[in-house]
Design a protein around this nucleic acid. Sequence first.
DNA 1: TTGTTCTAGTCAGATTCTCTGATTAAAGTA
DNA 2: TACTTTAATCAGAGAATCTGACTAGAACAA
Lengths: 139, 139
Amino acid sequence: MNIGLLLFIPSRAVENRILTAVVEAGFEITQAQARVLMRVGPDGTRLTELAEAAQVTKQTAGFLVDQLEKAGYVERVPDPSDGRARLVRVTDKAQEAVPVANAEMARIEAEWEQHIGKRRMAQLREALDMLGEITDPYR
Amino acid sequence: MNIGLLLFIPSRAVENRILTAVVEAGFEITQAQARVLMRVGPDGTRLTELAEAAQVTKQTAGFLVDQLEKAGYVERVPDPSDGRARLVRVTDKAQEAVPVANAEMARIEAEWEQHIGKRRMAQLREALDMLGEITDPYR
DNA sequence: TTGTTCTAGTCAGATTCTCTGATTAAAGTA
DNA sequence: TACTTTAATCAGAGAATCTGACTAGAACAA
């Protein structure tokens, strides 16, 4: 079985489970919105950077940030260092979803570790982290 | 960094590269179509199965198969064992894309192995394969 | 200083992907 | 036969994504 599909399946599983957990906790958010939201840094991130990180066009990122803003999960503030730019920042409301997502992530990792063992889990993480160096356009 | 994102990044990279290679070889196909096409078995697969495998609704799978059929990459034939069902089958035209995809996949694997080493690559594959057992809804 | 070029973001419009709900036809079952 | 389930499709809508064109501010070179 090809390694692309092999990577895709658990990746999709994580996405689905975390999104489900967050939505069930009362946060109305979609997968696409979450993918952008996840990339907003602690001091705010420019739209262009978000677009690159999420691997979508600026237009798409803008569209998703619009929705996140309407829903109150992010806010746009002027970038003091550049009059053209604005920083997208996570609001307190969105911060409240973080522990929910983290808890589900921890549950998933525990299940996986249970299934494949601590050693393999560590190896997996190491290999993926290194692959990120050559496959993450944001890194 | 969370393992979902860690999985997502190289998975997306593989998808993008293979799709690009196939499209550049003259096959007009989209990512969503490819995800369905990839799951069609050698003797044909029912729409419902494809939908499950690709984790989309039957309607979505049907929509994508319609497009693949129009483009000549698959055909629908009656299922001899069930009058309600039809089997989606890959055509010769689509078969021609297989070596292109395989070649690109081999290139990617070679690059990755170069970067993380043979041992880690084998460990990665083993861990992912096992994770598939608990995360692949189709398996 | 003044053009020219580049960059950040938005607007407009279209396409693609995906879903929910209802429907048809064939199987399976009591 | 009548009821239930299953495979697939139809209809309609919403979400996500793209390409191309535009505006305003920044950077830079002459």
